[in-house]
């Protein structure tokens, strides 16, 4: 039937359009950029290794040119065009070789990764360690909050509590971190308080909190802690009230209830919260940029930024960025294995 054939034709057209758009997204916006970044991390520019041999050859050619020029002066008129041609040819060859001598060559290898100095490696590891700490602390702090919100008795109470959590969550990250800058600054709230209490001498200019990595850590916990609350809340909320009651009726203590009923049920939510919090912390550029003033407080993202926009060494920058991505992938893999959840449960 012709109408059937036509229908299947435009069904295929529509489906083809979907595939095309999906391919543009997956390849054009996700995979190819990542591949280009990895490729960039695998090469660097180097002086041509044959440069010394080249420069010797160039010197020899210059000598020949000089000899020909001497010949030219002594030569009879009819031989001159020949000599001039030859000189021109030699000069051309010299120009070519000189261009090659100065042109750095692309060398492929893993050296960009190995080039991470001791200090940078230390910052890398510290960033990961701090991010794990941010994640664990967020989990511990948020667990009771999310539990209370999910188990709130009245719907109104729950809606209000959710609202109170959504508001700070939705306020721009920079501004929330800025609030902590105002607390930790030299003239900030904390120093003013310490002066008032007589613990710090006003003349000393206050305690330079911003030079300690600790302040970056505090602001980071504040910035990303709510990314833990909502996945936990969603997981707790879907837990059947009867299961909780049954456990209670059977005499389970609060500890046992959570260990045997709530946590096993909330595994995917816990995993999502941990992955998001860790990833945001490890890759955060905003928080350290605002909070750290010292040499000691550097976050790895700042080193990446400097490689790109200050040292202008994109190859090393790409290697650093990919190292960070690998660390995050390893963390996601570990969390998925620890909580025995699949990718479909992680990203929902």
């Amino acid at each position: 039937m012709s109408s059937g054939a036509l229908a299947s034709l435009d069904r295929r057209l529509l489906s083809g359009l979907c595939w095309l758009l999906a391919a543009i997204w997956v390849f054009g916006l996700v995979l190819l950029p990542q591949l280009f970044m990895i490729e960039t991390s695998l090469w660097w520019l180097e002086r041509d290794p044959q440069a010394t041999a080249l420069s010797q050859r160039i010197d020899r050619l210059y000598q020949e040119v000089m000899l020909r020029e001497l010949d030219l002066q002594a030569a009879p008129v009819e031989r001159r065009p020949l000599l001039e041609d030859e000189i021109a040819r030699l000069r051309e060859e010299i120009a070519l070789l000189e261009a090659r001598e100065q042109q750095p060559v692309k060398v492929y290898g893993f050296a960009n990764y190995a080039r991470m100095s001791g200090l940078h490696l230390q910052v890398f590891l510290r960033t990961l360690a701090y991010s794990v700490l941010v994640t664990l602390l967020s989990l511990a702090v948020c667990y009771p909050v999310a539990w209370t919100a999910a188990r709130a008795r009245s719907r109104r109470g729950r809606a209000l509590l959710l609202l109170a959590l959504v508001i700070p969550y939705a306020i721009n990250e920079l501004l929330r971190v800025y609030a902590w800058l105002m607390i930790f600054d030299y003239e900030g709230l904390l120093n003013a308080l310490l002066v008032r209490l007589g613990l710090v001498d006003r003349q000393s200019g206050g305690i330079p909190f911003l030079t300690y990595p600790f302040t970056t850590f505090v602001a980071m916990v504040y910035a990303y802690i709510l990314f833990m609350v909502f996945p936990l809340y969603n997981a707790f909320e879907s837990l059947d009230e009867h299961q909780v009651e049954a456990a209670r009726d059977l005499g389970a203590s609060t500890w046992l209830l959570h260990r045997r009923v709530v946590v096993p049920h909330a595994r995917p939510g816990i995993a999502v919260g941990c992955v998001m919090t860790f990833m945001l912390s490890a890759g955060s550029y905003s928080v350290p940029q605002i909070m750290s003033r010292g040499l000691g407080g550097d976050w790895f993202s700042q080193l990446v930024y400097r490689q790109f926009f200050e040292a202008n060494n994109w190859n090393i920058g790409a290697a650093y960025a990919f190292s960070l991505l690998l660390a995050c992938l390893v963390f996601v893999g570990l969390v998925m294995r620890l909580f025995r959840v699949g990718i479909r449960e992680i990203a929902r």
Partner: peptide
């Protein structure tokens, strides 16, 4: 499963890396 993982991977990638890879790709 594979395509799903690829499509959600940007959510699990640190934001600075999305910026960097796009920057490098389009400069090329």
């Amino acid at each position: 499963g594979f395509l799903y993982a690829v499509m959600v991977s940007p959510i699990l990638t640190p934001g600075i890396i999305l910026g960097i890879s796009t920057l490098i790709f389009w400069r090329e």
